[in-house]
């Protein structure tokens, strides 16, 4: 198991969590419900942060644990670091009310 460098919780997820710091332009390997998936990281991904494992369009839902964790605030390419700079929360958004 330790050869994998990212964890994908559910097959529906479009992001993976890296289990070690990943340098830019390095391959990230993961087990998606029994299938090996390899993605090339475009950015440096800090330990515990997320990498996009599919292309995600602006406004599209970002899925982890098979559940919605937010929406893309711009287009995200496969292999991009996915975090607060390109992911917006959908909940507790008092700033979007009125």
């Amino acid at each position: 198991m330790s050869k994998f460098t990212a964890i994908v919780m559910k097959a529906a997820d479009n992001v993976a969590t890296v289990t070690e710091k990943v340098a830019a332009n390095t391959e990230v390997t993961m087990n998606v419900e029994g299938n090996l998936l390899t993605v090339c990281a475009k950015d440096m991904i800090p330990f515990g942060h997320k990498v996009a494992i599919c292309a995600i369009s602006s406004g599209e839902k970002i899925i982890k644990y098979g559940e919605v964790i937010g929406k893309a605030t711009r287009d995200i390419q496969i292999g991009e670091h996915t975090h607060v700079h390109n992911l917006g929360g959908c909940r507790g958004r008092g700033d979007l009310e009125n």
Partner: peptide, 15 residues
């Protein structure tokens, strides 16, 4: 939490 990789309250909650 954000430095640790959590991007939204939903992500935190689901964990």
């Amino acid at each position: 939490n954000i430095e640790g990789g959590l991007s939204s309250i939903e992500e935190k909650s689901l964990g």
